[in-house]
């Protein structure tokens, strides 16, 4: 890694530390400090975990699909996770599912998700690799279908329950499941560690199939491995806050722009740090300064959607 990349990463880290400190200690008051601090720490952990998982998943997915305008969520990854969750409930029964310990439940969901995502998207990317827009459209429609299916199954399970639509609207960064957080954070850390260990191979993978094979990379295995990583990371963020569709797009775009390098050893940490800064800073702004706890995800997704359209119009889809 060159000097400039190191400086940028250090700067981003410093900014994140400052924002985190502000998040934890701003207007703490005198009463019940321990309780408030713990509450804030959990939320901070959730934000950083989601930021890291979404951004790293997006960068990885863009590398494996050789495309700079995709996110796993545009291609239906999170919809698949919600569908799996619903199917698990259907298989085990609502009561049986609720009785399982959080860790077991989550582990089962992530394992299943990884398996299915590798199968499905491995097939899709392998087959459609020569017609990228068609592959994207297929993914988008699969996402629509998965969402309809989850609601379909949910309604059959419990026709009176109308508020089952978990995957329908927005992610909410302000409600993080504290019980899930330790597992989610551990998985994210592990996922990022693996991605960093593979960084040099990811650089080769990004060259495309022919050059990568010529250089002796086990291309197909690598694609499946990266898709598995993406599936794990998407499971984490979807389980914690719900579907995040376009946020990763902005972050990956910024990471590429800021680092001015295609080296994953620099790109991955940069993307994670940028994402964490945006989420923590944004939540600080909206929740503390404007008193709108749930607005951030809407604003971020809206901006991301516009960014996507902009990329589309610029002809950057290939």
């Amino acid at each position: 890694m060159d000097r400039r990349a190191g400086l940028v990463l250090a700067g981003l880290t410093g900014l994140l530390l400052a924002l985190s400190g502000l998040w934890l200690f701003q207007g703490l008051g005198t009463g019940n400090r321990g309780f408030i601090l713990e509450l804030r720490a959990v939320k901070l952990g959730g934000l950083v975990t989601v930021a890291a998982s979404v951004s790293v998943a997006t960068v990885l997915f863009q590398t494996v699909s050789a495309n700079r305008v995709l996110t796993p969520s545009i291609m239906g990854f999170d919809a698949l996770y919600v569908l799996l969750q619903t199917l698990l409930v259907a298989g085990l029964g609502v009561a049986g599912f609720a009785a399982l310990p959080t860790g077991t439940k989550f582990a089962a969901e992530v394992a299943l998700m990884t398996l299915l995502a590798c199968l499905l998207f491995g097939l899709l990317l392998g087959r459609g690799a020569r017609d990228i827009p068609r592959t994207i459209l297929t993914g988008v429609i699969l996402g629509v279908m998965f969402r309809a299916m989850s609601e379909f199954v949910a309604r059959i399970l419990d026709p009176n329950e109308f508020a089952v639509v978990q995957g329908a609207s927005f992610a909410s960064f302000s409600r993080v499941d504290a019980a899930l957080l330790p597992f989610a954070a551990a998985l994210t850390l592990a996922g990022i560690a693996v991605a960093l260990a593979l960084a040099a191979r990811l650089d080769v993978l990004a060259l495309g199939r022919d050059p990568a094979v010529s250089l002796g990379l086990r291309f197909d295995g690598m694609v499946i491995g990266v898709l598995a990583l993406v599936a794990v990371l998407v499971s984490v963020s979807t389980a914690l806050v719900g579907p995040v569709t376009f946020f990763g797009l902005i972050v990956a775009g910024m990471a590429h722009g800021v680092m001015r390098s295609a080296r994953h050893a620099a790109l991955l940490p940069a993307a994670a740090l940028i994402a964490a800064n945006i989420l923590v800073g944004g939540q600080l702004l909206f929740e503390r300064a404007m008193g709108q706890a749930a607005t951030l995800s809407v604003v971020v997704e809206f901006a991301g959607g516009l960014f996507f359209l902009y990329l589309l119009l610029k002809g950057r889809i290939r």
């Binding site: 994207i136 459209l137 988008v140 809206f302 959607g305 996507f308 359209l309 589309l312 889809i317």
Partner: peptide, 25 residues
């Protein structure tokens, strides 16, 4: 959009719908 990119049109439409939908919501 580039004329030959048939698939970009529905993708653009889906995303535009999504963005408008988020505004409405």
């Amino acid at each position: 959009l580039p004329v030959r990119e048939v698939m970009l049109v529905p993708i653009a439409g889906l995303v535009l719908s999504g963005v408008l939908g988020s505004v409405v919501t």
